[in-house]
Design a binder for these strands. Structure first.
Lengths: 363, 363
DNA sequence: TTGAAAGCGATACCAT
DNA sequence: ATGGTATCGCTTTCAA
């Protein structure tokens, strides 16, 4: 029961097992496997033979302890079933894989405590970077909280990346990859306004969510630009989900709200709105026009296909990974980046499909 | 440049830093942090103070090397943007988190080489289990390949879990969590047949995909049961995506194929089919009925809402995790499970919504 | 080109 | 209750 070095068919084979069986030193096995050191053909052959026989793989934990190890990025996401986030994750994952990096995905379920727990967990794992996805709630705490995360990770040799969230103020070691959220909303609203719509129902999202705020601001600016008075009574806040879109429209209809178009905060909200409109006997876009935001696959799968704002989610993921990879590689030597990190902003644009039509005459 | 033990504000704080600063031994710090050993209040206080000051977290790699460590499950998925897979992943993740386990997500992009690479990578990470998601291609190789994975992982103290894939034959150490795929298709087809449909366009998926095969078989059985001759000419194979659904219907329409209903292999395929029907001037369900499979959120967001087969994806994820967790806990002692592992099958059922109507009279 | 041995950071056993 | 220390598996000088 207490024998150790003998036999041991149990558990994983170690580098020592390989060394013994191949009749060489562990150092040699390590060299053969790392491949970053000259080795004789003979030795390589013998080692590889045994590695094959034993189906040996190195222990990643031991390896990273000793210095080596695969860089890992952690992606922290609110809800893995959100299409937009999934695309960012895909971008990060793809770019990571390309570089031989590993990626972890953790979900927070919108719970700040869990987010904190995950950031710490990732810090324990010694990840190269932690990518936080998605709009954040604009509470006072946010900046402090993120700044703390940033410094914490930085001190541990890791790095915080915010994707689709507002950048951090001040001298905080974090990178932000953002998109022109407000500009997209401005363009989208303009599209509606230039088609002649004046009474627009706005479903920007949760009032405290930064992305919702930006989308609402963009729409307001468009109204101003068109000289159309903005009616706050036409705004209904709520979560980014199908149900909210449905209910908001249903209630507006019942409440006798007068509108010819719906500007939804996301495509999913637009889908719900569309359904409610139909349930109310209205045709889209004949009676009411609808536009969304995000351009997830759903947008082009709805009938009619949804005119929406394209957000380059997958690219944002790739860019985010590239940013941390560059920083890591360029980090050792000369050139220094501002310690406040970078802020990258990608563009958005309107994708015109079939859900908008000039409002019907009404006089 | 070569000083080591002094200062060292760089890199992560170690347990030794904490110990020194608190004036106690590393063993004590370890005890305080693990909390699984009696410690004096005084000591605990002093250690925690320093831990807070230094923002210290233990090194997960060192910890797992030394024996402890958080159990980790790896989820290998073809495409993270697939809604069904995302739900399984959510289930696994949720159940893992509940137990304090960590979870990793890797994507294979349908590439066998990458799948292999990932399985090995996970083996290096020493994960407690590797969960493979989604239908597999029914090539000869499959069984051998999976059996190899299973043994490889088993030998490393890990475990293979197949979710939504066919179970392995013979004495292979793997667990399969499956759902009644064929039964669901049988029920779905029966629903169509009992509504009076006889000419049904079948879009089961790729001919080589195990899930597609099962769904097709289920449909065939239903036809037999209803005494309706099955016409192989009504079957169109293709990928599980929107485009395939669209094109298959579009071409059938052009080709003058006569059908009153579409039985799609997935909800996404159904969405494409629905769009193509509309483009062809047909109404759903007035002119043509459509049913899907999976019951992802999209199904209830389409207009009309889609009648489909509900597959308990998220639950499958939870069940999968529970299976490996149980095996891990119960594994040490007494009762032995068959070394060929378990095969769990969850039920499916038809969700009736609004996309089916009896076929229009035609005489 | 190859081998011996000193860590990497944390755990847990053995003393005290 | 606390402290020393061997040990986990691997990488990487330092010698030979």
């Amino acid at each position: 029961m207490s024998q150790r070095k003998t036999s041991g068919d149990v558990g994983r084979a170690t580098i020592r097992d390989v060394a013994e069986r191949a009749g060489v030193s562990v150092a040699s096995v390590s060299r053969v496997l790392s491949g970053n050191y000259p080795v004789s053909e003979e030795l390589r052959r013998r080692v590889m033979k045994v590695v094959g026989d034993l189906d040996y793989v190195t222990n990643a934990h031991a390896r990273s302890l000793a210095g080596g190890g695969t860089p890992t990025v952690a992606i922290l996401i609110n809800n893995i079933t959100g299409a937009a986030f999934a695309h960012v994750a895909k971008g990060v994952e793809g770019a990571a894989t390309l570089r031989g990096w590993l990626s972890l995905v953790g979900t927070t379920g919108d719970d700040p405590e869990r987010e904190l727990a995950l950031v710490n967990l990732m810090r324990q794992q010694g990840v190269a970077a932690v990518v936080l996805l998605g709009g954040a709630y604009d509470v006072d705490e946010y900046q402090l909280r993120m700044a703390r995360f940033a410094r914490s990770l930085d001190a541990a040799g890791s790095h915080l990346v915010l994707v689709g969230r507002p950048p951090l103020e001040g001298d905080v070691p974090a990178t932000t990859v953002d998109y022109d959220n407000e500009g997209g909303a401005y363009a989208m609203a303009s599209h509606l306004l230039s088609a002649g719509h004046r009474r627009v129902l706005l479903l920007p999202g949760h009032a405290e969510l930064t992305t919702a705020q930006g989308r609402l601001r963009g729409a307001q600016r468009a109204f101003e630009a068109y000289g159309v008075p903005f009616d706050p009574g036409m705004v209904r806040h709520g979560p980014y989900d199908y149900e909210h879109g449905y209910e908001a429209v249903e209630e507006s209809l019942k409440g006798g709200v007068d509108f010819t178009a719906v500007l939804a905060g996301t495509d999913v909200v637009a889908a719900g709105a569309m359904q409610a409109l139909r349930a109310g006997g209205l045709r889209v876009p004949d009676d009411v026009s609808i536009v969304g935001y995000d351009d997830i696959p759903l947008a082009s799968q709805l009938t009619p296909q949804l005119t929406t704002v394209h957000v380059p989610y997958e690219e944002m993921g790739r860019v985010a990974l590239r940013a941390v990879a560059d920083r890591r590689e360029g980090g050792g030597t000369g050139r220094r980046r501002g310690s406040d990190g970078d802020h990258l902003v990608l563009g958005t644009h309107v994708v015109v499909r079939n859900s908008v039509r000039p409002p019907a005459r009404r006089d």
